[in-house]
């Protein structure tokens, strides 16, 4: 991990206007990351996805922050044209379901070429695309290159999606529950690909997930979010030593294969967790 950070976030806030009033979905989130696997964990409604989207300027809510900088360049108040130079090129995003992220009327190959249009063209681009498909461990890149999205299985589609996101060789990849829709074995294979890419291409990865066990074994660091705030920042492998009762509760909840209990512990939510986290 080198010294200068890829992403600096300071006091990020996201608010939504709804018919029932303003919803403050993300409150004073701050973190800095380098070339590492950073997890944002939390339950639905914790603000983890909105945080990820805000980095790409994709949240429909109102974003304010003291600092939101990518390689020192502020991402606040960028014009649409400036965003286009960053989105999909320097920062890419992988969504949960490949079904909705791949264009159904374009072949996988065309979509890959489209993603790298500004960087490479012609035979070189094609070569690059095939190489990318191979990098995400697709066994027959030529066939997948010519395939339509509906011809691919879920795991294959998600790999093609990741290949597409990596075509422009981004410096930061935001993956929002990238493997939740996949079967367990495929899920781990896709993670292994991401792991590889972080190591070999020196990419930063923001891994948004609700699965603490996966985060514990896969990521470097973890931010635990609850009700729009970061409750705790931890080294992922030390997640089991978490201090906050919320994190501890989450860790205890899931049923375990080798440790059967007659009842599962239930998370007792404390209203004080909603209070602003003291600085």
């Amino acid at each position: 991990m080198d010294k200068d950070p890829i992403l600096e976030v300071e006091k990020l806030n996201i608010r939504f206007n709804t018919p029932v009033g303003e919803v403050h979905a993300v409150r004073d989130v701050s973190f800095t990351m380098g070339r590492e696997k950073l997890a944002i964990v939390g339950e639905s409604g914790s603000g983890k996805s909105q945080t990820g989207r805000a980095i790409l300027g994709l949240t429909p809510g109102k974003v304010t922050a003291q600092k939101l900088a990518f390689h020192g360049q502020s991402l606040l108040g960028l014009a649409e044209q400036q965003w286009r130079r960053i989105r999909g090129k320097r920062i890419a995003m992988v969504m949960q379901d490949p079904k909705y992220s791949l264009n159904p009327v374009m072949t996988i190959g065309d979509q890959l070429l489209e993603a790298a249009r500004d960087i490479k063209e012609g035979a070189a681009a094609r070569q690059h695309a095939l190489g990318m498909l191979a990098a995400v461990r697709i066994r027959d890149p030529e066939r997948v290159f010519r395939a339509w999205p509906h011809e691919l299985s879920g795991g294959m589609g998600q790999r093609a999606m990741i290949a597409m996101m990596l075509m422009a060789e981004p410096e930061l990849l935001i993956a929002d529950e990238p493997t939740s829709a996949l079967d367990v074995t495929v899920r781990l294979q896709v993670l292994a690909i991401l792991d590889d890419l972080v190591k070999t291409r020196h990419m930063g990865l923001i891994f948004i997930s609700h699965d603490l066990n996966l985060v514990r074994t896969f990521c470097d660091r973890a931010l635990v979010m609850y009700a729009g705030q970061v409750l705790e920042k931890l080294t992922a492998s030390e997640l089991t030593e978490a201090k906050h009762p919320y994190t501890r509760g989450l860790l205890a909840c899931p049923p375990e294969i080798d440790h059967r209990r007659s009842r599962l512990p239930v998370l007792q939510r404390d209203p004080s967790w909603m209070e602003p986290v003291g600085s």
């Binding site: 292994a192 792991d195 996966l214 080798d258 440790h259």
Partner: peptide, 28 residues
Amino acid sequence: SEGRLLHAYSRQLLIASRGYDTAAIAAF
């Protein structure tokens, strides 16, 4: 729960549910 599964596929499922492990994945 004691891991006494016989079929290779069942065993692989069991390993996969334990979390991310590079060595195990390579052996899938």
